[in-house]
């Protein structure tokens, strides 16, 4: 890393806001830094300043409110996500997805806020949070607002965050024990890999009848997406080979993948169908 670079370490949001008055386009927000620092070193980012958020205590912590919403500070690391008892109990899907990411060393650093604000189409936490109907809290010196995660991603690497806004919290409605949830990810390696496709599924069943379905896809469209058509199809259906196949087909149609260095668009399409099928099947094995 080279050049004259400033490094700010605000200890509170109050200390952060004045720093955002100028040079906001040339500022990199350091959470885990696992992506930002690599991009900076590779000169993919032109930055004059790092603002290290890690000393802002209000961005940390995991707690449950009286409305059964899990509040996850944006600085929560992936390791915390997959080991924290509250996450394991109330958002097991998120814990499982975090565990499938990168390596121990990266998981010890990378944060939920970083993963979401990076807005990679393949972000592993996005599909689970999409099916869990998570809401993110964005704050600026003008105040706070809440945004459905569905509205967060606007394009590859693009979010709905306005300049001067910081993601402070991710709120996740607690999963009921009866919820059937699965996140499946396929990379070329079994670890240290970026998904060629990722699929999250959440089903509410009444016997063999699907009451509610949520299906989200990662790495197969410019942003992580929910698949409304497949969800609507499954609602009220009996879950069997035919209904699963139809849902998988609808998901495949909804996907809009590209070919890149990791695999082809065609294979990604096939993978969507295969993983949606597997994910629903896996949900159905859960008691």
């Amino acid at each position: 890393m080279t050049g004259t670079l400033k490094y700010e370490t605000p200890h509170s949001l109050a200390e952060l806001w004045p720093l955002l008055v100028s040079d906001r386009e040339l500022t990199g927000f350091l959470a885990g830094g696992t992506d930002l620092i690599v991009k900076y070193k590779r000169k993919q980012l032109n930055l004059t300043r790092f603002i290290d958020l890690k000393n802002i205590e209000s961005l940390k912590g995991i707690w449950l409110d009286e409305n059964k919403n899990l509040h996850i500070g944006s600085l929560t690391t992936l390791t915390e996500l997959h080991t924290h008892p509250l996450i394991q109990k109330h958002a097991p899907l998120l814990a499982a997805a975090a565990r499938k990411m990168a390596s121990v060393q990266i998981r010890n650093r990378a944060t939920i806020g970083g993963n979401l604000c990076n807005a990679a189409p393949s972000a592993d936490l996005a599909p689970p949070l999409l099916v869990l109907d998570a809401v993110v809290k964005l704050e600026s010196d003008q105040g706070a607002r809440e945004l459905s995660i569905k509205s967060l991603f606007t394009g590859p690497g693009q979010t709905a965050l306005k300049i001067g806004e910081v993601m402070t919290e991710v709120m996740v409605p607690v999963s009921e024990p009866s919820d059937k949830v699965t996140y499946l990810k396929q990379g070329l390696r079994q670890a240290m890999d970026i998904a060629m496709a990722g699929v999250a599924v959440k089903l509410n069943m009444s016997g063999n009848l699907c009451q509610e379905a949520a299906i989200a896809l990662g790495a197969v469209a410019p942003t992580p997406i929910r698949v409304k058509a497949a969800e609507e199809w499954l609602r009220g259906q009996r879950i069997n080979e035919q209904s699963i196949a139809k849902a998988a087909e609808l998901a495949k149609i909804a996907a809009n993948p590209i070919s890149d260095v990791r695999t082809t668009a065609d294979y990604r399409s096939e993978l969507v169908s295969a993983l949606v099928t597997k994910a629903i099947q896996e949900c159905m094995t859960q008691v």
Binding site: T9, T34, V104
Partner: peptide, 10 residues
């Protein structure tokens, strides 16, 4: 454990 190559020294 961390990758020290992506931890800012500061």
């Amino acid at each position: 454990s961390v990758n020290s190559c992506i931890v800012p020294a500061l």
